[in-house]
Structure formats: C-alpha cells, structure tokens
Amino acid sequence: MTTEVIIVTLIKAAIVIGALLTGFAYLTLFERKVQARMQQRPGPNRVGPWGLLQPAADGLKLFFKSSSAPSGRDRFLYLLAPMISICAALGSFAIIPISGPGPITLFGHSIGWYVMNVNIGILWYLAVTSVGVYGIFLAGYASNSKYSMLGALRSSAQMISYEMALGLSLVPVFILAGSVRLVDIVNAQHTWWFIIPLLPAFFLYLIAGIAETNRAPFDLPEAETELVAGYHTEYSGLRFALFFMAEYINMIIVSSIATVVFLGGWWGPAGILPGPWWFVLKVVALLYVYVWLRATLPRMRYDRLMALGWKSLFPLSLAMMMVTAVVVVAAQGVF
C-alpha cells in the first residue's frame, strides 16, 4: 500500500462523508415534504425557497440547544454510544460502488467510484452493522432510564433478529453473481437486474432492511406513545443529532445496497444518463418507499414483529436460498 493509495482513499472517504451528511440533511426535508403532501398539507416552506434551507435551520437549532443529561448516567458509555452509532453508519458506506470504473484519471491512476473494493464486499456491511447494535444498546443502558432501557432492548432484539433474514436474503444474489464483491455483483446485472429473477428475495431484503433501520411500521424502539423516544430519550442537542443522523444514514445505506444488489446499480436503459445519476435516482426512489410506508402504515405490535421476523421472513429467505441454489445447479447440468 503506497502513500498515494492512502491519500486517495482518505480524500474519497472525506467526500463520501460530506455527501452522506448532506444527504441526511435533505432526506429529513424530503421526508417532511413528502409526508406533508400525503397528508394534504404544504410541509415546511418558510425557510428559503420551497423550504430548502430548513435542514440548515434545524442544524443550527440543534447546535445551540442546551444539552441536558441524566445525573445517574454512566459517563463514559453515555458519550461512547452515539459515536459507535454514527461511525457504524458512516463506515458501512465504504464498500458501495456508485458507478463503474469511471473516466476519472488523476496522476496516471484510474480512480474507482467507491472508497474500497474488497473481496469480502457485503460481509463488511454485515460486520459493521452488527457492531452498530452496541451504539443503541449502550445508549439505553448508560442513560439509566426505564424508557431508554426498554427502547434499547427492543431495538437490539429487533436488529439481531432481522439481521438473519437480511443476510440470508442476500445469499441468492451471491449464488447468481458468484461473488460477494459489490462491483462484480453490479457487473453481473449488465443484462438482467437481479430483481427480475429474485423478486421475492428483494422484498425480503426490503422488509428486513426497514426493520433493521428501526423505521415505521417497525419503529417499536421509539414508539412515542409508550416509550417517549426509546433509546435516545435521555439524549439532547448534538448528541441526539448523532443518533438522528445515524438512523437516516442507515436508511440511505440500506437503499444503496438494495440498488447495487437488486436494481442493477449504475446500469440504466441504453446510456440515457451517466451511471452515477442512475444510482442516485434508484436510491431516491427507494427512500421514497421508506417515507411512503411511514406515512401510510400503522405501527406493528411488538410480538407480531418478532413473529414476522422469525416465523415468516427467516424461513422464507432460507427457502429462497435453497431454491436458487437448486435452480442454478440444475441449469449448470442442462447447459
């Protein structure tokens, strides 16, 4: 590993973090606007044209808020928890390729549209998110509050349960693409996007992904009618903002992975738009689905949520994996 490679990677990481934080800010506005339209009201429209400066105003407000913290907290873990959450959220984007090996050439190096292109590919995402659970659980534990603890328990149990279905729903894709490297997976979808042969796996992934990010209708961890705000009840100001950011960035990441793995990544119909645009369009479409679900579906009951995860999604994704494997082996025997 030369110094050049390290410098290029650091610059890419800085760009990706900047893009993700901007994406987070405008995702909040997008969510409020879309939800408002679905409820027959205009949504935020006072700060800047069409409310476009609303995220900046929200950020400033959070920045200047006085921070309060429970006196019985575990000081070290209380500080550590939001950091784990945000690092896990930002770190998992590193493997996502936004476009093919692009036209960018600097100092004789052709630079890929990803932070890293590693052989373990999507396993990196699964590893980083499995560490992200600690952020949420420790936030609940360190706050020394019943609401926080209950929210954290629910959230971590939900994330651990749905991680199984999430990982297994991706296995059919690995079987078809013959690799877990995301660039290889996208290249394998040059003619057919994997959503066409693997439609059930796509839906399994989407449901598990929504549960994994603790979003409606699976937002039990922060069910405000019973738990105030769940694991981040006792966080305020910028520390709360870190959890908020982590949740929205995780939404972007689940959508990006769905795009890369099932929707053909940067491939679009016959070169109408350059690759990165297709990627962004598909991610925005999936984020719209997220907001749409939140605006239209009521929250599930907790025991039903767990039953859905373990008794429906988990066996279905196992079955999907077996069927794909059998079909692929049978097809190899025929051709």
């Binding site: 373990i120 396993l123 699964l126 590893a127 980083v128 499995s130 560490v131 651990i160």
Partner: peptide, 16 residues
Amino acid sequence: FLFAAQVIVYAGAVMV
C-alpha cells in the same frame, strides 16, 4: 473473510 466472520459472529452476536 476471517475478519468479517470474527466481527459478525463474536463481536456482533455472541458478545451482544
């Protein structure tokens, strides 16, 4: 691969 397996299985599942 061992890196990912170690993080997912031990740090991410067992220790949680």
